[in-house]
């Protein structure tokens, strides 16, 4: 240790300079002042410092706990609000869907009605047209008979043969029919 090194280096004065720590004459002084110091520190700590720090820490802990509780409450409120919003959204969606379906059904009914009406009209017109066509066709057939008869008469008279009305008519009818 350093002491031995020193003692070796300064052999002459080693006897007079022992460890200051072992100088018994200073012990009572150090012990007295140490006890005074410790008592003062103890009083300062136990009467002032420690209660104050403890109260500060407790207060902070309380504040933190309160804040956390408040935060939890607000979080719950936020969750409630979100649930309400979701519910409103779902309701609105359902409503919208319902309205859309109703409207669609209504429109379908209208369309169906219009279609039916249109179909009926078309059928009526078709029938009318067919009747007219049949009439025209009839008319045409009559006209052909007349024309054929007249033509046949003219042709026969041109040939100078006596006109047998009944025979011509019968021949024309047979030709037209055939």
């Amino acid at each position: 240790m350093a002491t031995e090194a020193k003692d070796a280096a300064h052999g002459a004065e080693a006897a007079s300079s022992g460890l200051p720590q072992l100088d018994i004459t200073t012990f009572s002084n150090q012990i007295f002042w140490l006890i005074v110091t410790l008592v003062v520190i103890y009083l300062v700590l136990s009467k002032v410092a420690l209660p104050r720090i403890a109260s500060v820490l407790a207060e902070r802990q309380g504040t933190i706990t309160n804040d956390i509780a408040a935060a939890e409450e607000l979080k719950a409120k936020a969750a409630d609000a979100e649930a309400a919003y979701e519910k409103a959204l779902a309701d609105a969606r359902a409503e919208a869907g319902k309205i859309a379906a109703d409207t669609k059904a209504e429109m379908q009914a209208e369309v169906d009605a219009a279609m039916a009406k249109a179909d009926a009209e078309i059928a009526a017109r078709t029938a009318e047209s067919e009747a007219k066509i049949a009439e025209i066709r009839e008319g045409a057939a009559e006209a052909i008979k007349d024309v054929a008869r007249d033509t046949a008469k003219e042709v026969v008279s041109a040939l100078g043969v006596e006109i047998d009305e009944k025979a011509v008519e019968a021949a024309v009818a047979a030709q037209v029919k055939g």
Partner: peptide, 28 residues
């Protein structure tokens, strides 16, 4: 060095009291 002599040990012990008071009392 008598029992109640104010020594360098006394001084440095007093300084520890001051420092502790500064930290734990004045500081808070």
């Amino acid at each position: 060095v008598g029992m109640f002599t104010i020594t360098n040990a006394t001084f440095w012990m007093a300084l520890t009291i001051v420092c502790i008071a500064l930290l734990l009392v004045v500081g808070t």
